[in-house]
C-alpha cells in the first residue's frame, strides 16, 4: 500500500527524518510515537503527499507520489482519510455538509441516509446542522473521523487524534478506529499517549513505530 524507501526529509537546513524504510500493509494497524518535534506530523504529511521527501521515495501502490500530477494527488487523497489534531473544517458549512465534503468534491452522489448513519456511528447525528465552531473538541475529532471515512478510504491517518480529549472520549475514538481496522482499513495513528496504545493493543494486533534521532524504529515489544 504505502511504502517508504530510504526516505529523508530536511527542513530549514537540518535533517528531520533520515533513512526511513517502511511498508504499511493493507489492513495493518500502526502507532507512530516519538517526542514532540520528532517528525510524526511530517511523516504523515509525506504519506499523503502534502510534503515530498528530500531523498528516497514514497509510493502508493507502486506509484511514486512525487511523479503524480496534481489531479492524481487529489485522486489519491480520496483513498486516504486524514484526521488532524486541529480538525480543519469549513466553518460556514453545517457539520453534515462538512462530513459530506469529500463526496461533493469528488462529484459523487450524497445519500442523506448514509450520511446520518455515519453521524450516528460517531454519535453526532443530533448535531448535524450545527456549525463546526459550536462543537466541542471531542465532537470535532469525531466529526473529522467521519469526514475521513465518508469516502470509504483504504488508509486512515490520524495525527494526535486524542490530543485534546479526555480519556473516555479518547477510548471512544479509538474504538471507532479499531472498528474500521476490523473492516479492513489500514490505520496509522501518530500519538504519544501510551495508555491509548496499550488499550489498542489489547483489541488489535497493532505495531508501534517510534521516531528517534531522525530514524524510525519498532518500539512495541516493551510497552
Amino acid at each position: 500500500m504505502i511504502e517508504f524507501q530510504n526516505v529523508a526529509y530536511s527542513y530549514g537546513g537540518g535533517e528531520l527524518l533520515s533513512e526511513i524504510t517502511l511498508r504499511l500493509s493493507p489492513g495493518s494497524f500502526h502507532f507512530l510515537t516519538g517526542p514532540s518535534g520528532a517528525g510524526k506530523s511530517t511523516f504523515l504529511k509525506l504519506c499523503y503527499g502534502e510534503l515530498h521527501p528530500t531523498a528516497g521515495r514514497v509510493t502508493l501502490e507502486d506509484r511514486d507520489l512525487r511523479a503524480m500530477s496534481r489531479d492524481d494527488v487529489a485522486q489519491m487523497r480520496r483513498r486516504i482519510g486524514v484526521v488532524h489534531q486541529d480538525c480543519q473544517f469549513l466553518d460556514h458549512l453545517p457539520l453534515v455538509e462538512n462530513v459530506a465534503l469529500p463526496l461533493t468534491a469528488a462529484g459523487q452522489p450524497v445519500s442523506p441516509e448514509d450520511l446520518f448513519d455515519l453521524l450516528s456511528w460517531v454519535g453526532l447525528k443530533s448535531l448535524a446542522d450545527h456549525l463546526p465552531p459550536s462543537l466541542s473538541g471531542g465532537e470535532r475529532q469525531r466529526a473529522a473521523l467521519a469526514r475521513a471515512v465518508v469516502m470509504s478510504p483504504d488508509v486512515i491517518l490520524a495525527d494526535e487524534p486524542t490530543g485534546n480529549l479526555d480519556w473516555e472520549m479518547s477510548l471512544r475514538l479509538l474504538t471507532l478506529l479499531v472498528e474500521l481496522n476490523k473492516m479492513g482499513k489500514t490505520i496509522l495513528i501518530a500519538t504519544h499517549d501510551l495508555n491509548l496504545i496499550r488499550s489498542a493493543k489489547s483489541q488489535v494486533p497493532a505495531r508501534v513505530l517510534r521516531i528517534s534521532n531522525r530514524r524510525l524504529q519498532l518500539a512495541g515489544s516493551d510497552l
Binding site: 487529489a74 480543519q88 468534491a105
Partner: peptide
Amino acid sequence: AQVIRVLRLIGARDAY
C-alpha cells in the same frame, strides 16, 4: 487559504 487547504486535503481537484 484555510478553505483551500481543507479542500485539497479531502481530495478536491484544482478545477473544483
